[in-house]
């Protein structure tokens, strides 16, 4: 377990985001992620989970309140390569080999080539893709592409990793394997991670805490500590302790979700 009072790494205070069209994505959101913590974020679709990640990455500006990463503005933390983002899709460039894809963040930062290559080699080894360094993304399976995407995010050795439903499009087994992979990488490097997911089981498996957001505009409605021992692996999902926590998260999530129109019909 983590120290009694580790420093906050990411801190949102009264955070609100309104899109130019007038849609209020987030409102009055307070959230603290401690250094080295793996936080799972779950909520009904359209609740602004992705928006929160984008604010934390400095890709979207807050309309009200504020959010800091390591005490500074997200864009500043990003500029010193301390923040990395794993997107929903692998977002690999098809005309580049895996190796060239993985080293891209360093290349864009104009890091010396030898350093780029060494870091890309290491990152590919970390996710077990060394022998596919020269392969084009088109030659790989969905799971391998997502692992390469993970390697690309880790190539800068970020302090904060933001994951936006990264394994949502994969089949069940591949997804399990990638969750194990992510847990292993996190246990090794202990970066701070904020992982958005729409799967309750995934949230409980990954998170030190599971934070439940309300429907739009999103705010924190529940913050559930996951007191399961680490290291965790996907096999844990079947255990009774796991099921108890998952049931609690599911109940809070159901309460947070806007009423389903079919329920209303059933009641009349």
């Amino acid at each position: 377990m983590t120290d009694p009072a580790p420093a906050p790494h990411l801190e949102a205070r009264g955070l609100g985001v309104r899109f130019p069209g007038g849609v209020q994505a987030l409102s009055g959101l307070d959230l603290v992620v401690r250094r080295g913590e793996l936080l799972a974020l779950i909520g009904p679709s359209g609740c602004g989970k992705s928006t929160l990640l984008r604010v934390a990455a400095g890709l979207a500006p807050p309309s009200e309140g504020g959010l800091t990463v390591a005490g500074e503005a997200p864009a500043r933390a990003r500029a010193r390569r301390a923040v990395a983002f794993v997107f929903q899709d692998p977002t690999l460039l098809p005309w580049r080999s895996l190796h060239q894809n993985v080293r891209l963040p360093l290349e864009l930062a104009r890091v010396p080539l030898a350093e780029q290559n060494a870091a890309a080699d290491a990152a590919l080894a970390l996710v077990g893709l060394s022998e596919f360094a020269a392969a084009a993304p088109a030659a790989l399976s969905g799971g391998m592409k997502m692992r390469a995407s993970l390697a690309r995010a880790l190539v800068t050795r970020p302090e904060l990793l933001l994951l936006d439903e990264p394994f949502g499009a994969l089949d069940e087994l591949t997804r399990e394997r990638l969750n194990d992979e992510l847990l292993r990488l996190w246990e090794r490097d202990r970066f701070t991670a904020l992982a958005v997911t729409h799967s309750v089981a995934e949230a409980v498996l990954l998170g030190d805490r599971v934070v439940v957001l309300s429907g739009r505009p999103g705010r924190v409605v529940a913050d559930i500590a996951v007191a399961l021992p680490r290291p965790r692996r996907a096999a844990l999902v079947g255990s009774p302790e796991f099921a108890a926590i998952a049931a609690e998260v599911r109940a809070r999530l159901r309460a947070a979700a806007p009423p389903d129109p079919s329920d209303l019909l059933a009641r009349t």
Partner: peptide
């Protein structure tokens, strides 16, 4: 969208 591309 080649299958094998140069590494470096």
């Amino acid at each position: 969208r080649g299958r094998e591309l140069a590494v470096h």
